[in-house]
Nucleic acid binder design. Structure first.
Ligand SMILES: [Zn+2]
Ligand SMILES: [Zn+2]
Ligand SMILES: [Zn+2]
Ligand SMILES: [Zn+2]
Lengths: 173, 173
DNA sequence: CGCAAAATGATATATTGTATCAATCAGTGT
DNA sequence: ACACTGATTGATACAATATATCATTTTGCG
């Protein structure tokens, strides 16, 4: 993930501040509900926050191993599973990576816009997309779940920098 | 894929007929354009057609190996890559599997509705979802590519059969 | 035919994700 | 503080998914 996209800047802007508060809230909520807030789980959450973007399980493992040699892939996956169940982390299927949820306060059918040039991810809660998807589901007899919808494309900065050839699939020419 | 979802019936209805014609058209188109239509590529396409649903690369490899012991995972992945570039096959990121495109005649930003109980996949070209996604992309500076959007949920038959507990994520209770 | 480009076969390896089970830890009641 | 109980971890092995490399074969073409 981060290795293959060296362009992403790990800014610590107001978004990170908001996430930090959210994180503390999440951790607290966790404790008071019988779920256990452990060293490893906390470490995974904080590593994702520090990164400010998506990381693969093994990238997380590498980072955690620096501070605590006992980290294992299995442990990282277990922690990720825990946080996904809690709604605090999303899995990006298209890049096999994981990212902090930006609105963990409330359940939400969201969208994840992913730039396949720089790896940037933006999370939204667009009513239009959600409604259209639900209508489509109804029409076809599907009850959609609330996993965020992944939309891939090219972000503005990447287009400006000339990366991003033709968006979309090449026609079979 | 098929192993984990024994409920899917491999119907050979009118859809399969349509796909067969499409397949022949695709194969012919391929030949006349300098792209080579080879034994292995044809075998992959026909295996997907015979299945009538999604298969993982290794499931394809197993099927191909029966008829031709020389099939390798690498070869299967190469053939899949070829057909995806040609727009004839879609990759389902959420299940790491591959499926024939149901409308390969024309390029399309489509949707793939995936039942996570039975593995059924329905491909659509819903204007509403496409438009909403594009509007969202514009608003955020993203030019979306044309990979189909994956929507997961539970299909009607599966809901009727009592499978499909609560759709969506459990709130962090 | 004889060449060059495309594709394959064979093999090795990288990446991503789970299973198992004994040891440890966190919360609970005494 | 102490022991009890179930959740969690550490350690290890392994399964599943995907790509890299390169010599050989096939294909299209002059
Ligand atoms: Zn979210
Ligand atoms: Zn970008
Ligand atoms: Zn399609
Ligand atoms: Zn179903």
């Amino acid at each position: 993930m981060s290795g293959s996209h060296p362009m992403r800047k790990p800014t610590q802007g107001p978004k990170a501040q908001t996430q930090l508060r959210t994180l503390e809230r999440l951790e607290a909520a966790c404790r008071t509900r019988g779920r256990r807030l452990t060293r490893q789980r906390r470490a995974v959450l904080r590593a994702l926050l520090a990164e400010g973007g998506a990381l693969t399980a093994y990238e997380l493992h590498e980072r955690l191993r620096v501070a605590d040699g006992r980290s294992t892939p299995a442990g990282v996956y277990r922690a990720l599973e825990f946080w996904m169940t809690a709604g605090a982390v999303h899995r990006l299927e298209s890049t096999r990576s994981f990212i902090l949820c930006e609105h963990p306060e409330s359940p939400h059918p969201g969208q994840l816009l992913i730039c396949h040039e720089c790896g940037q991810v933006v999370e939204t809660e667009d009513k239009g997309v959600a409604a259209a998807a639900n209508r489509l589901g109804e029409r076809l007899g599907f009850v959609l779940d609330r996993h965020p919808v992944e939309l891939t494309g090219v972000c503005r900065p990447c287009r400006a920098q000339g990366r991003a050839a033709e968006p979309g699939r090449r026609p079979a020419t």
